[in-house]
């Protein structure tokens, strides 16, 4: 009886040791692969919605937190001042259903087709505020990155996007 119990305990210890080896090998390989791979991510992502757009922070991330406007009041002030051009990166159908007052549509999927006209209409020093659906949407950052490569430099991103605007009970335009 005691021998059988002893054997069970020994077996369990062996199982746990095997499991520990598997876990250690997995962790080492995972960390090595992550640091080597182009698609690797940071050990700490940005998952706090109050801090802006959430993102796993990949190595080649386009997320630039310093460009984000996280405060709805600041955004309302910007919209009312009409100092900047608002750029909506959502699809045409979403834009037509409702968008921030005075916004222009530049869907990210149609960027290549529309950037020519956009480039003609807006000089490179135009103040642009880009937004998409909400804090879980990275399209505004992707579009801002693309616009930056075209030479636009005064670009900001409304991290709350259309969702925060609607939650704030603010007026929208419908096309």
């Amino acid at each position: 009886m005691a021998q059988e119990r002893n054997e069970i305990v020994q077996n369990m210890v062996q199982d746990f040791k095997g499991g520990a080896v598997l876990l250690i090998v997995s962790i080492c390989c995972a960390l090595a692969f992550n640091s080597w791979s182009d698609s690797g991510i940071a050990l700490k992502g940005q998952w706090d919605r109050s801090q802006g757009v959430v993102s796993p922070m990949e190595k080649n991330t386009v997320v630039d937190g310093s460009r984000e406007i996280n405060d709805l009041d600041t955004m309302v002030e910007l919209v009312n001042s009409k100092r900047c051009t608002l750029v909506d990166v959502r699809s045409n159908s979403q834009f037509d259903a409702g968008h921030l007052p005075g916004a222009v549509s530049l869907p990210i999927e149609a960027f290549d087709q529309m950037i020519g006209d956009f480039f003609v209409e807006y000089p490179l020093d135009t103040c642009l505020v880009v937004y998409c659906a909400g804090r879980e949407c990275l399209d505004s950052h992707r579009l801002a990155h693309s616009l930056k490569t075209f030479g636009f430099f005064d670009i900001r991103i409304f991290s709350g996007g259309f969702a925060d605007w609607m939650e704030g009970g603010l007026s929208v335009e419908i096309r």
């Binding site: 095997g18 080896v21 997995s26 962790i27 995972a30 991510i41």
Partner: peptide, 28 residues
Amino acid sequence: INPSAIVLPFVELFAGMALIVGVVPRSA
């Protein structure tokens, strides 16, 4: 979240492989 996303797939991979080849199958 990020540490899990980095490590979990490798745990799945190695545990799965260990089970297939029969190395420490009970641990896997």
